[in-house]
Design a binder for these strands. Structure first.
Lengths: 252, 252
DNA sequence: CGCCAGTTTGATTTGTGTCAATAAGCGTGG
DNA sequence: CCACGCTTATTGACACAAATCAAACTGGCG
């Protein structure tokens, strides 16, 4: 019931009191992933001054809601977030999962309103970066401007990979591709690429990959039976990485 | 055979001799769609100076190729273009169709190499806009910088709509949604929204919507039988727009 | 005029969805 | 601490939309 209350509340961290939670990108061990910029001390300081951080989001808290005014983009510091849009008949299309060091919310720039919603999959700490400040700052810092262009371009590229995955690949290939993607991103954060806990439910995976829960479950069972994975609910152990890559076939 | 030769030649219009084909955005009737900027005369002039235009692309000519160094983004002046990526086993995923006034090629920014290829669907005139020049210029023109952010954000939003379409909608809904999208974009250019010629083949439509040619053909036949469309090969006449919107169901 | 790519239509197969039932996890409150 | 209830996950039987295979037709272009 507390979760349900959190669902309906607008957890807009951009409007939260910021100075209680000052951020230091300087000491953040994610900065290499999040903002790998060649900024000197002074520029980095100017960037840090605009970044806000609120108290952590609890599982199922909304970070922002589809249609809400666009103000900030968000960097995940810890935890995990899903972005999704809801179709006319109430079904949910997950458009991305975001892990520490990754940035989301850029789909709101074009219209001034968020084109999707974002929800914490577990307790998560998030940095909010007010976009108008970022825009002004980036006009003075060519490296920052370029980084933002690259960030958005990467989002486009990744969306196109998902389009291809949904369009051309079978259920098992989709699931294997997602697992490899998560494994790769874990490795980048110096976590295990072969043993990890999925922060999202089977339903979320299905809503991301365009498949039903039942199909996701069956694929996991089959991969386990074939000795590719050991699956214990959300705990995944990749036993045969080569076989998993073969199962992914082409998607990456 | 001339088409085949054109296919294999790199038609990089960015490197073509530019001063033979000077552009004037000022007099371009597409500028409202392409670059709806509140630029004064001087700023517009600076923008125009960097834009290049080459001789028209013929049908099937490549505009750029996946993996080629990223140098420019491209605005369609006339004709039509498809963007696509080729999967490991040689199948083609069309990621977008681009009509006059629309801009493509932004997926190359993040890695410095084009993440997809682009091919003319018919004889087309294209403006090449060198991205490094555009980047430098946009640091001085906040309106231009903002416009570029919005352009990329819109691409993200549209990719997410396609993701949802592929993931959640049946064949007939996908085809109807594409037709409505084309109709809407025609209307924006003051062309008929109810009668038009598709520049792309059934194969291209299938490769865009994640369906086989046969299915596309069957859907067209069914929509025709039901009095929604009159179809004569690539010539489409929307007889019952309300029914077409009902067929699209949720996708837009 | 003839060729070849593109399109249409039909017969059959198949992967995934749907429906249904059971089991397992997990937070809540007695 | 256990019992309850609810959400999530698993497994099976069956249905169906779209893929595949096959064949005929069409139209544009050399």
């Amino acid at each position: 019931m507390s979760a349900r209350m959190a669902n309906s509340s607008d957890a807009n961290i951009g409007s939260a009191c910021s100075h209680e939670y000052r951020v230091s990108c300087d000491t953040c061990r994610l900065s290499q992933i999040c903002l790998p910029l060649a900024l000197n001390g002074e520029d980095l300081d100017r960037l840090e001054r605009i970044i806000q951080r609120s108290k952590p989001l609890q599982k199922n808290d909304l970070l922002y809601r589809e249609g809400a005014p666009f103000e900030s983009i968000y960097a995940v510091r810890s935890g995990a977030v899903k972005a999704f849009r809801t179709t006319g008949d109430g079904r949910e299309q997950v458009t991305g999962f975001y892990f520490p060091g990754e940035i989301l919310g850029m789909d709101g720039i074009s219209s001034g309103a968020h084109a999707s919603s974002a929800r914490a999959l577990e307790t998560s700490a998030i940095c909010a970066i007010p976009f108008d400040s970022l825009e002004r700052l980036s006009a003075h810092l060519p490296g920052l401007q370029r980084h933002l262009f690259q960030l958005m371009s990467r989002e486009i590229t990744e969306d196109q990979l998902l389009i291809t995955l949904l369009s051309k690949n079978a259920a098992e290939e989709r699931v294997a591709t997602l697992l490899l993607s998560i494994a790769r991103r874990n490795a980048r954060r110096h976590l295990s690429a072969t043993q990890f806990r999925l922060p999202m439910s089977r339903i979320d995976i299905g809503n991301y990959l365009g498949l039903t829960v039942e199909t996701i479950s069956r694929v996991f069972s089959r991969l386990q039976k074939n000795g590719v994975l050991a699956v214990d609910n959300k705990e995944i152990h990749v036993l045969d990485n080569a076989a998993l890559e073969r199962a992914a076939n082409l998607g990456t």
